[in-house]
Amino acid sequence: MTYQRRVIEHAGYNAWISVMLTGIIMHLLIWMLYKILSSIEDSNDIVTINHKLFGKLLGNLINLAIVLYFVFGAFVKFKVYMEMIQVWLFPSMNFLPVSIVIALLVYYAVSGGIRSVTGISVWATIISLVSIIPQISLTFPFLHPMNLLPLLNHSASDILLSSKDMAFEYLGVETLLFLYPFVRTPEKSQKWAHFIMLLVTLLYLMILILAFMFFTEEQLRHTIWPTLNMIGIFEVPLLQRLEYMAISLWFIKIIAGISIFIWAACRGMKVAFHLRPRLSLIVFLTAITALCHFIIDHRTVERVSEIYSNIGVYFLYAYIPFVFLCVMIRKKLIKPI
């Protein structure tokens, strides 16, 4: 929802190239993830792979870091959404009750196991696919295609920097590290994973280009939630200011994201430290709700989400290739014996 502004910070209106670039890198990462997860026998999630590669102690340290990273991700998602509600819907609301109710919902979803988590994600996917159609058709009269020109006026390094910012939007693929053992036919699923990645990239690209054609560059630099501003312009019979509805609809997607992250974290705790998932679930959710209650001002939230995005980028661009290399080397070493 907010990526348009961040992405153009460096590359300006050439950022669509960065989006495509990030999409391609993500494909590479998915391929790596599948390779990592499928190449070591009898260990197909990241916890056991870490144990095998780095030993019990160091491995567990990394696992803990990964688990915390997921919880952190869930928190950031949650908080960013809360901010959006605060700005757009209820400026003077006491957020504690809402966050408790949402935490309960997440608890209900995650305690249903992988099946209900993926179920809510299916709904989220359906919603985002369905909601894009009216969005495109309604923006159509307001577009200025000439905004896209000139096509290339930024250096390659700018575009690369933007694509690093873009990676934040793709965070979530790493949940595959835990999801993998639950996939019944991994070979088939890889095809789907690539397909979905392509679809997501196209979606991002489409929304970005819509925003480019809708706003001028200077406008876009100062808009925090360009998508919402865009939606706010639409008028359909019976309703106007559709952004109020859009934000609420967004809720389902947020819940799906949070649930998957929390589920992955609980799963990690279970495999690595043999903790009862229900217990860690309760602990994580209380922590998130409490943190949400105490972190209030926008600057902190922004900083926190920046930290998260940086960690995420390193996680994706450094840790996964590193593990990939380790796994490959290990494979080479073991094979001759």
């Binding site: 819907l89 109020y244 809720f251």
Partner: peptide, 17 residues
């Protein structure tokens, strides 16, 4: 509307379970 969608969220999770 947020409350409505929280309700829908509960409904959807319930249905998937």
């Amino acid at each position: 509307a947020l409350g409505l969608f929280i309700g829908i969220g509960f409904l959807l999770v319930h249905l998937t379970r």
